[in-house]
Write a protein that binds this DNA or RNA. Structure first.
Lengths: 195, 195
DNA sequence: GTCTATAAGCCGATAGAC
DNA sequence: GTCTATCGGCTTATAGAC
């Protein structure tokens, strides 16, 4: 397949995504320039606009594809119907999924205010769908008498904040392995809600 | 007391702090210009530099005085020696203190990466001192057999993430009052750690 | 203490050559 | 598809008048 000299689109597109993700996570969307992203990729700034219409859509694409990944990975992972087992599955899934992509997670939480109103609404709806999955498990267990929960919506927010907080301190080279962390958190969450 | 026309330092200084705090919380440090802050205060940009050496120290001052407030308010609040009562006191204090200053809390969590390395180290040390207060309570209760905790450091991070997460969803005009939120969270945290 | 004016430079995005 | 050059506008911070 003949290819024009200097044509590397199949390689350049993902490299732009990766460079933007790393730089946005490290310095913040507003503090990163298109020139910095181009330099990281090894092209000139003009070349970026062959792949993205503007800086905003670079951010939106990163966030929406992260949440797409999250929702589809979760849909695939969840197999347990029993509320207690479903909650354990959710706990371990959330920790593992988020620990493996700290940059994407960080951006998804930190850069919401840099989205346009339309993009913000889209992202928030996706996040809400994920939260609703946990709420459904909690209400299910509540209805069956398996969980003792005062307020399911508050418990949802508390559990997600607690689990996502792992990313602020967990390091692969640290004192605890990821499976040890999973064990400890499942132990805490079990005590928090299981009757 | 004679005062030069246009001299308002006693008023201008706090107004700059308040404007910077509101704007940094809403748009992010990197996205806010000194001109925007000046416009919000009602002065020209040059006047700002009578009160702050540069933009960075405006951010650092906001963050360090927030953490100063947090540490001294906490020192004053904590009176209980019994681990269970001390933990309840910590829970209620954290929720109340943070709910009352959402902008300062938001900045303290979101703008860490925009601090110079030296300023970052100072802020991190203060945050760590606050966390250590909770860790001490947990280890104390663990030693006395009042708490059943697998890992005190992890429990510390989990509880703080859970409590600080209240700020992401709590609204004064919402379904729950602040005291109801306090009750619900203390219920969850009690179950999480009390033997 | 506040103002205006300015320095020196970076910003996002585009046009047109190759 | 990538390059160079450029537009118009914005940035932090400072100098000097009042």
């Amino acid at each position: 397949m003949a290819r024009t000299a200097g044509s590397h689109s199949a390689l350049t597109a993902p490299r732009i995504r990766e460079a933007a993700q790393a730089l946005f996570a490290q310095h913040g969307y507003a503090a990163v320039s298109m020139r910095q992203i181009a330099a990281e990729v090894g092209v000139q700034v003009g070349a970026l606009y062959n792949y993205t219409s503007d800086k905003q859509s670079l951010l939106f694409d990163l966030m929406s594809s992260h949440l797409d990944d999250l929702l589809s990975a979760r849909a695939e992972d969840q197999t347990e119907a029993d509320p207690v087992q479903a909650l354990e599955q959710f706990t371990r899934f959330h920790i593992r999924f988020h620990a493996r992509r700290p940059d994407a997670v960080f951006i998804a939480y930190m850069e919401l205010r840099n989205l346009t109103p339309e993009n913000f609404a889209t992202i928030e709806a996706m996040r809400r769908r994920y939260e609703d999955g946990l709420s459904a498990i909690l209400r299910d267990g509540q209805a069956q008498g398996a969980f003792r929960i005062q307020d399911a919506r508050v418990a949802t927010m508390a559990i997600i904040a607690m689990l996502t907080g792992v990313n602020t301190w967990f390091r692969k080279t640290g004192r605890l392995s990821l499976s040890e962390v999973e064990e400890i958190y499942w132990g805490m969450i079990r005590r928090l809600v299981v009757a």
